[in-house]
Amino acid sequence: MDFCKTVERLYAALPLRPFRDWLIRIHMDRCPRCQERLLSREEARSLLVRPGQTGDGAALWRRISEEAGRLVPAPKAKGSGGRLAWQWAAASAMAAVIALTGFWLLRQTGGPGFDARAITPADRFEIAYVKVGGAPAQTFVYQPQGTDTVFVWAQKTP
């Protein structure tokens, strides 16, 4: 009894996972008194949603099938050599484009004739159409006064 309390105090006092794991393994997992203070599997099941309670898989398939139909089949694993070379080539090209763009921007903005006021912000922010999960979505657009920042939140139509 006293030993259990000592172990509990040690558990609470030292929030180190390996140490706590050690306490659990050497005492709490084996001690009937400590086990009584833990939720049993049956009690946990009564609080959780179980797979059998969520309906049938066919209903889920009806929901997923439309999107799944648009997918291209996952490619079979190929020799990794060719793919790796392509990845390197693409990454190098991208790095070169970024470096050139950065250099060009630096020259444009760093020059003596640069005037930040000459850059005009977009007059109007527009969203033509937003879909979430394959269906038209509710869209909220929020622009704090006096700023050029626009926040967009899209969510499923209830």
Binding site: L48, V49, R50, P51, G52, Q53, T54, G55, D56, G57, A58, L60, W61, I64, S65, A68
Partner: peptide, 13 residues
């Protein structure tokens, strides 16, 4: 379809 029907309720739960 078989994949969703077999494992769908598990993932959803």
């Amino acid at each position: 379809r078989a994949m969703v029907e077999t494992y769908g309720t598990l993932v959803l739960s």
